[in-house]
Structures are given as structure tokens and as C-alpha cells.
Amino acid sequence: MTHLTPDELIDAMEGVLAADRQAHLATCEECRRQVEELASVLHDAKRVSVPEPSPLFWPHFSERVRVAIDQDAAAGTNWPAWLRWQVLLPLGAMAMLILGLMMTIPIDNDVRDAGQLTESAPHQAESESWGAVADLVGQLDVETASAAGVIEPGVAELAVLELTAEEQQELTRLLQAELTRAKS
């Protein structure tokens, strides 16, 4: 029969070893020696006590916990408004989108494509581009961003209205290129 496993040695030391393994232990000197050594170390460990703090310590400790909780709560509410997750989440999403656009668009091809697009069918490109804007904006949680105060009501619309014709074309080109890339 095989020797006791570590689990079984612990069970044996604690007196809960299964009966069939108990039979092995009764006949195996090596396993008995291991169990005795474990028990001896445990006995030594049990004799190490924790010194009792002064009786005055406990009320003081409770007061410390109260104060620490108050400070923790105060620290939680005193964070700058822009550090809250309701603000950081939409900000982060917008930053990722912009970063993604900047890193993935091959500029040379896009300039040529955009030129062809504006020359051949400017009106079609314009209507498609606004569709693209709607698609991309739809992926963002605008309500969350707006509720968090990141986007003031009407700010996005105002921003688009303030773009020059060239800027609108450039925005269109960027979004169109991104959509084409995504589809391909």
C-alpha cells in the first residue's frame, strides 16, 4: 500500500483519516514518524501567543476606525468632478476613437480617394458622410457623457456648424476612410 499523501498526513494528525488508510498508518513506521513530526511542530507553533494590548487600546481602536471611515468617505466625495467614472468613461471612449482614427488611416491613399470622391460625386459623398457620422456617434454613449456634464446639450451640433466647408470635407474624408477600412 502507498504511503500517506500530504492531505492524508494532515488528516491523520487531526484524527480524521479514513479507515482504510488508518490501517496503513498502523503498519507503516515512516508515515507514523511523519505524522508525529508534524504534530510536534504544530504543538510548538500553538504555544506562540499574541500579547494582549492594553485595555485602553480597544476603545481607542474603535475610535480610530470611526475617524478613518469618516476620512475615507470625505476623500471619496472630495475627488475633483472630472475624476469621476461618469466623466472618465465617455472621455476615454472618445479618446480611443480619435486615437484609433489617427493610427489606422493611411493618409496618402485617403487624400487621393477623397479627391476623386469630391470631384465625381460631391453631393453623394456629403450625404454618405453624414450617415457615417451618425453611425460612429451612435457607438458612443452620448447620454452618459451629457449627463456627466462632459458634453453640454447642443455642443456637438454647434461644433459641427462652426466647421468651415474644408473642415467638414476633411471630417467626411476621415470618417469615410475609416468606414471603408472597416468594411474591407
Binding site: 500530504p6 492531505d7 498526513l9 494532515i10 513530526e37 508534524l38 510536534s40 511542530v41 504544530l42 510548538d44 507553533a45
Partner: peptide, 8 residues
Amino acid sequence: FHALANLK
């Protein structure tokens, strides 16, 4: 088990 063995 390993804690006791290491202590020993």
C-alpha cells in the same frame, strides 16, 4: 502540510 514541513 507544507507550512508545517517548512517550519520543521
